[in-house]
Write a protein that binds this DNA or RNA. Structure first.
Lengths: 358, 358
DNA sequence: ATGAAAGCGCTAACAA
DNA sequence: TTGTTAGCGCTTTCAT
């Protein structure tokens, strides 16, 4: 009765049930159970039902660990965020993206394994190497495409399936996800400002090694050129609020005739920080300075004045990315086609207004 | 030569190396390799070195999957966020906390498996059940303690080690992490306002089923009572910016003699949204209304006016939580003692000022 | 000090 | 249709 001898029989103590317990309870073999849970053929209806009942009763579901070891999927996707936590805290960009990814992963019973590494050189590479060596994930999602991104080669070498969120640089050998017509947003923003009479328009960009940053700056310049205008000052900043404040101070310190009357920022957080900095310097938005952000985060709705921004649906972008990953790993995983991506578009609110003549 | 017969020998194709490859290269047995990587005794120095070299050369590290199956750790901690993604996007609270957790997990080679589930009833429970049934994680971190939190019983039943971030309700049977002296923050904030001459002080709290919310409201009320004052209006809101805006509109709509001259909010995001809402209604902060937030997120530094808030070091709280989890799972994992937690303290900036006499 | 071998829970070939 | 069994990569007795 109180025996605990080896594999004698079924009365397990109280540990987690295994496939063997289910098989025993259903009175079938383990392989029968396996076939049922994996939807393989060659199982009679009554048997299937008995297995299902047993599994249900025992609250059993296959151990991902064992399945993974067996060579199949780990049912996890990795993501390495190489940003300082401070930046992460300021800019919800990532959070929204991750939420979108999750929304797609969850129904497929996939998890997201997150690694937030600092910006120390090598930290990111180490994280990917470990993910691969330990066979922890089926693939990784990359964000913030970089020019000549070293991660692509690394991942190829590591044989880790990867999907990039956003704009690839040249013919980068990694699957990427983005809406067509990326240039629409910045283009519309510039036109909007020009229509409002602005002639001296500044651009505050993120670090120059980021693809999207460079890409957008080029659109900015070419749109202006197409309108026969010359671009105002272009400042390279980081993505931080402090960076935006510093840039704003610099821009507004210029003599009035060279001072920009409008600024485009690389993200909403920077734009909002800039509005506040401007006000602190005695400039009123949008009367003295028009400001445009990027991303259309909820933030923009409740600041004062409400932020005019270039909207992209990051949540949906996350979804699409995860879906692409599924298609890459195993088309059977991609249940439903996610909603299509829309190009970024200008959301006009209150932070832009007519240029005030000097 | 071109054989691919079974376990004949070593010339693996190009797949990931296994412990056997390392053993072969080092000319030892697999168990020797295992002992070396696990720091077991009974290995001579030269052997250890040969193994290390071989592992290094092959860029091998143990498969977490196999280790986990073997019954040891999965080297992953789970976290289920039961918030709408919109709230997540607005309030970086979570992000900072997660960064802190990560900082502690990473050196121990632990990953964070994140599940963002919506607010549909049952979604959260399902997520935990799956985490447990699939044996995906060694333990879970819980946030946002709730009154009579059903998760504790669930997790106990699931035999899933859990650590709670923040204030437990009564004698909840879950390990929890928080700094001593939680009441210090709100208490100092109330005193600060009273010293500035405010007598009609409002409180806008989060949902009433949250422990920290109720806890803070009580401190608010008791501090005021201790000062011989009666609390102003207490509004129950959600944690959203919209909620804060609505609450502010309600508060400011009151006739002047009953209108609060200061408000405490449940978090920084709400406070900032409220400042903007007030301005939109023609009230200037802090002249007409003093505003205090909670958390001390970076946001508060660059809004205008700069936000007075109750600071708690969420990053460090995350670290401490992960450390506690390690201690719970296996004291050997807890490498260094994390820095001690400090009680929340008032950070006075620009959003609070003297009460303007009627 | 070192190695052989038995599983951990599962899947998939192969038998029956 | 059903069951038996050999591993997946690793750790851990138990021999040697």
């Amino acid at each position: 009765m109180t025996n605990q001898t080896s594999g004698t029989s079924r009365p397990r103590r109280s540990a987690k049930p295994t496939i063997a317990d289910v098989a025993a309870l259903a009175g079938v073999s383990v392989s029968a159970v396996s076939k049922v849970v994996n939807g393989r053929s060659g199982i009679s209806a009554p048997t299937r039902q008995r297995v299902l009942d047993a599994a249900d009763k025992l609250r059993w579901s296959p151990s991902v660990t064992a399945v993974a070891l067996r060579g199949a999927r780990t049912r996890a996707i990795g993501m390495v965020a190489g940003r300082s936590s401070d930046l992460l805290a300021t800019d919800p960009h990532f959070t929204v993206l991750i939420s979108g990814i999750e929304r797609e992963l969850a129904p497929a019973d996939y998890g997201l394994l997150l690694h937030i590494v600092g910006e120390e050189p090598g930290a990111e590479e180490r994280a990917y190497r470990r993910l691969a060596a330990e066979r922890r994930v089926d693939g990784v999602i990359l964000t913030e495409s970089r020019i000549d991104d070293p991660r692509f080669e690394l991942l190829r070498q590591l044989r880790l399936p990867a999907v990039l969120v956003g704009v690839p640089w040249q013919a980068d050998p990694v699957v990427s996800v983005q809406a067509a017509g990326q240039e629409a947003g910045v283009r519309a923003a510039v036109r909007h400002l020009v229509e409002l009479g602005h002639r001296e328009i500044a651009y505050v960009s993120g670090p120059e090694d980021r693809v999207h940053t460079v890409f957008r700056r080029r659109i900015f310049e070419s749109t202006l050129a197409g309108l026969g205008l010359r671009p105002g000052p272009v400042l390279i900043s980081d993505f931080s609020a402090q960076g935006a404040v510093a840039a704003t101070e610099e821009l507004l310190a210029a003599p009035a005739e060279r001072r920009p009357t409008a600024v485009l920022f690389a993200n909403d957080t920077m734009a909002v920080a800039a509005m506040n900095a401007a006000r602190r310097l005695g400039f009123e938005v949008p009367r003295d300075l028009s400001v445009i952000g990027y991303d259309d985060l909820p933030l923009g709705e409740w600041v004062y004045p409400r932020l005019t921004t270039i909207g992209q649906d990051l949540f949906r972008l996350g979804q699409a990315t995860a879906a692409k990953m599924f298609r890459l790993l195993d088309p059977a995983l991609a249940v439903a086609e996610p909603p299509p991506l829309r190009p970024p578009e200008l959301v006009v609110r209150e932070s832009t207004g007519p240029a005030t003549p000097l």
